[in-house]
Design a protein around this nucleic acid. Sequence first.
DNA 1: TTGTAGGCGTTATCAG
DNA 2: CTGATAACGCCTACAA
Lengths: 284, 284
Amino acid sequence: VANPTAARLAAGRTGTVAVVVPVFDSWYFAKVVAGVEAVLKERAVDLLLYAVDSEAARQAFLAGRGAWWQRGDALIMVDVRLTDSESERLARSGSRIVTIGSRTSIFSSVCLDEERAAALAADHLMRRGHRRIGVLAGDPHALHFTVPALRLGGFCDALDRVGRLPAPELIRSGGFSVDGGRDAMANLLDLDEPPTAVFCLSDEMAFGALDEIRHRGLRVPDDVAVVGFDNHDLAPLFDLTTVGQDVESIGAMAGRLVVQAMHNPSEPPEHVNTPTTLVVRGSA
Amino acid sequence: VANPTAARLAAGRTGTVAVVVPVFDSWYFAKVVAGVEAVLKERAVDLLLYAVDSEAARQAFLAGRGAWWQRGDALIMVDVRLTDSESERLARSGSRIVTIGSRTSIFSSVCLDEERAAALAADHLMRRGHRRIGVLAGDPHALHFTVPALRLGGFCDALDRVGRLPAPELIRSGGFSVDGGRDAMANLLDLDEPPTAVFCLSDEMAFGALDEIRHRGLRVPDDVAVVGFDNHDLAPLFDLTTVGQDVESIGAMAGRLVVQAMHNPSEPPEHVNTPTTLVVRGSA
DNA sequence: TTGTAGGCGTTATCAG
DNA sequence: CTGATAACGCCTACAA
């Protein structure tokens, strides 16, 4: 029964991976971490968890006051924004890095094609005849969290290609939460000319939106159609049409990449693209 | 910028807490960990995450092949079963320990009064006139996971006190998952004499149960009443009556206890009881 | 093959 | 109070 701390000091390796998420108590991130954990456990690698839940926390983390890079020999950053200069500084820190949800050339990454995924939703809604389409997005000021911007951009681009770029008033922030989704939906429905369909950047926001719609006695999808994103475990119960992704396997893949990078630090970065599929149910 | 590994070896402290959960991608555990993480972050303590998702994994962990007690100087065990002899061995390992969801005299703990909480549900259903009450419980063979037995016991005791101990066929395992809850509910409804009410040991099982009930064209609460447990973020959307607990503050409390124990190892264990309240909505 | 000395980068102690 | 020095416990390279 050896002492890991001494072993680490002597060997110069910690056998530990740090996982950084924007928040923790959300379906998506819990699933991702579960996927990572399963892989790391079977490789006997420890998992250190950091939540970086604001831009200030993000900067503090990257400034490295806690010298996190000495605590683990690799880092998985899940949907946390990285500027180019920050990336380069990380690369120089010597720890192997894998990003989830965003892609930099110098690190391995596992992403889904946000543009294509959002286009799935856009095309579906267009095909069903919707022309006035709202969006429940993330908080544009949440700079630490990257995915929302990419996903929103992809959706707007897809609509733009057919000359249907949504008016700014149709894009609302739902903060990626159920309550936020409900409030944002309420705002959309209060418009003089409310949208006939709404694309939610996460299923959790869609759940809130559906609740608000029902609460007003409107019908889904006849009065308002709703498309979500994630294929949350509870999406079938809400009969929610959604862009599905296999979140646990995203985490597992990142875990595999990071272990690989630990064993073979000189390998070039590997970029994995994760599939998304439109899961059509009754809400759109 | 000091090297934490060397500091740990020299000081004999790691500044790290290990958190052990049965599973990870479930609403309850994600919230608990979020609560712990928030407290540990502000104390600059690292969080190591282990999932012990089976009895084999539990025993492997406690056998200590990975020498986890040298990796952190304290341990938070969330709803993981501990026998008396295991507890004593842990106590001798020298690391400070806090348990969540179960209580041992030698370690600090944060629990809710499972008996009282379950009685809230039992009394409510009795008061509404239900006499034939089913239960959606956990897998009785999931020995690594402690809470189900306590909660089930509390509920049955409460019914027993009024001479209404549920028949064995009315107690079904829903595996603490949405799909498990749906299947278990289906089994109950297929009985010759189905229950008029069901108590689900978690809201997630209740969601599945509600879905199955609706799917059969039955009415809630007239045909079948449903009470859940947790007050999940989505419980309001299902109009679910449930026994509510403040999960995040449970995690935060455990975090505080563990930090306190790290600074003051000689303090006697402290036992915190967390409140539960019946949140009455439309399902029962 | 088996054994041993040196060093990993701190902390903490003990002289000065 | 300041500054040198001995652990901390293991890994690894080198020697026997």
